[in-house]
Design a binder for these strands. Structure first.
Lengths: 146, 146
DNA sequence: ATAATCTCTATCATAATAGTAGAGTATAAG
DNA sequence: CTTATACTCTACTATTATGATAGAGATTAT
């Protein structure tokens, strides 16, 4: 797994929306500003997140973005997989990988599988509700806001 | 961490050399053939591995490559780091990363650190001696050789 | 001498990544 | 019913990493 800027920006944006879950929609402008993301790049990311069913939008005045489901129902792993692809260190342990001619024979494969499993166990065990709580702790200590 | 072909090829090559540790040097030709690696690409990889102190070479007839140290002294993680860089899902948890302005404040950083740690724990706990043993088991079952 | 083998440097093609640009569409408010 | 605000959509672009390929040179056993 490698987290790209796309993925990183998506995660920060979802967290921002989670922090404003019960408020009015958040504009792309504000999301971009707070997380220091190029606005036109974020536009594309948000459209993808919308297609993925993670966020909803409203146009026009008082428009903006909001989460499509509660923060407790969105796991880190879901966003990572959606934006950056499979959680594995190498393609041969991806789901749907068919081309490796000696899957059962390669001494490395089980190791890559182990790495993929341990990573998944971490990112699939954290929801954005958890991160909201964590962030509020951090914020109170360090006056940081996203 | 993402394993590239360069890294993958290097790992397979080191394992091949480990399997022939007490024999005469192995030629690039044979290494490339057995692991199905483009020979000119493997040449470069081997020169790098030599610079890294992992392998030694002999030129001329009866030339070839051999490990510079016993398989028990080479860990998977060493080769991965040398060929593909740091074991972390994102740059902000790399050693020597200086630019992140709010390291202590980002809700994600400790998660990436956890992922890096759990991955390191796996790949730094396996030597090529372990893989040699494992491969011999696999080989006896499936008649596979590398 | 020569054949086999490693050594070194340069070059190249493709794809992924990280954006940028600009015209279009919907909506709240006056 | 116009206007300002904000999301939508498609196309384009620059840079870098990746995965090679090419060819001339150096070394060594026989």
């Amino acid at each position: 797994m490698r987290i790209t800027y796309r993925g990183d920006y998506a995660l920060k944006t979802i967290l921002d929306l989670a922090l404003h879950y019960h408020n009015s929609p958040v504009t792309i402008h504000n999301l971009a500003l707070r997380a220091d993301i190029p606005i036109k790049f974020l536009e594309q990311i948000l459209l993808d997140l919308k297609k993925g069913g993670f966020v909803e939008s409203r146009r026009g005045k008082i428009g903006g973005y909001m989460l499509a489901k509660p923060p407790s129902k969105i796991k880190l792993g879901q966003i990572i997989r959606f934006m950056d692809g499979e959680i594995s260190p190498i393609a041969c342990v991806d789901n749907n990988y068919k081309r490796c001619s000696h899957i059962s024979k390669c001494a490395f494969r089980s190791i890559w599988q182990k790495v993929a499993d341990s990573t998944s166990r971490i990112v699939d065990n954290i929801t954005f509700e958890d991160l909201v709580k964590k962030n509020k702790n951090l914020t109170s200590k360090f006056t940081y806001q996203i």
